[in-house]
């Protein structure tokens, strides 16, 4: 009963003071230590650095709320990158989107119909797709279609393109979760799939859809990142699988399913972004940063309210 009490305050958002306060705290600390942090140039750098991760983390959040996990997002990002420079520019966007949807379908069908554990299922597709990406483009390079580069390199009302990319996906994800039937049913499936089914929710469909949306988000992140660096790399996304899970967990999303929110994921992503940027500015070794992130994750998670929904 007391564990249910914990659910009372953050509801199903998983939001807590820790999740929301951590990026603010980091922001204050870094700006005190490093004067150059608060420059417009640097802040817009941070924004650009976290955009791809934010897009993927939003997709990861959807899968996590359904009770799953998707490790293949990084490989999908990499594969997107290699395809963008390998197929005819006019076909590039449809191709990568189709690939994204297919990967999501395979993951989703494996998990929801063949009941493969999501960790194993997406680990398999992650490994497979990484190999495929390296086969397509063994050496980094190539040129990204011009219109894509234009899409990531504009500024409007004094705000950079990265901001609008973030805004688009944040609004989209928030709309899906809060306003649609999909959002409500996703939470239901994640909390207790059997009971959701008893209420007439097609659990299989919603699980598969969540993986499709997640893979598609990875394709979007791949397009953004490739266009930003103006070149392709078959290992570009390698770090994203674990970083997206970290961001999601920092943001109060529970990997057991049924709990999570867009503001939480934004906070988690910014926290990770600030760790990288801040330590860069202060001149800390990236290896130290990696270790520090691990410790931070553990501390943040231990301070958050947790509950196995449905218990």
């Amino acid at each position: 009963m007391s564990s249910i009490g914990l659910l009372h305050s953050p509801g199903r958002s998983g939001l807590s003071l820790v999740a929301l306060g951590l990026p603010v705290l980091l922001f204050v600390i870094i700006s005190l230590i490093s004067p150059s942090f608060l420059s417009v140039q640097n802040l817009s750098n941070v924004n650009a650095q976290i955009t791809a991760l934010l897009i993927i983390a939003l997709g990861q959040m959807i899968v996590a709320i359904s009770g799953g996990i998707d490790l293949s997002v990084g490989s999908v990002l990499s594969l997107t990158s290699t395809l963008l420079v390998s197929v005819d520019p006019t076909l590039s966007i449809p191709t990568v989107l189709l690939v994204g949807v297919c990967v999501g379908l395979v993951n989703g069908v494996g998990v929801a119909i063949f009941t493969v554990h999501p960790l194993v299922m997406t680990l398999a597709s992650m490994t497979f797709l990484q190999g495929l990406a390296l086969l397509i483009l063994p050496v980094p390079g190539g040129s990204i279609p011009g219109f894509l580069e234009a899409l990531v390199d504009f500024s409007f009302l004094g705000l950079p393109a990265a901001f609008y990319w973030c805004l688009t996906f944040v609004l989209l994800a928030a709309f899906l979760l809060r306003a649609t039937k999909f959002g409500m049913r996703l939470f239901a499936v994640g909390a207790n799939a059997q009971n959701a089914a008893r209420n007439g929710v097609n659990v299989t469909f919603y699980k598969i859809l969540s993986y499709v949306l997640c893979s598609t988000s990875a394709v979007m992140a791949g397009m953004y990142l490739s266009a930003r660096v103006a070149s392709a790399d078959a290992t570009m996304g390698a770090s994203f699988a674990l970083e997206s899970v970290t961001a999601v967990a920092l943001g109060g999303v529970q990997l057991a399913g049924g709990v999570g929110s867009v503001p939480g994921v934004i906070a988690g992503t910014i926290t990770l972004g600030l760790m990288t940027n801040g330590m860069n500015l202060i001149g800390v070794s990236p290896f130290v940063r990696a270790s520090a992130t691990g410790v931070l994750l553990l501390i943040a998670i231990s301070l958050q309210p947790r509950k196995a929904i449905g218990a």
Partner: peptide, 18 residues
């Protein structure tokens, strides 16, 4: 009972036929 703990009373009552 088949209510979902993370949905509100109203949401639970209309889950599956929103």
């Amino acid at each position: 009972l088949t209510l979902l703990p993370n949905l509100t009373v109203a949401e639970n009552m209309f889950l599956g036929r929103e």
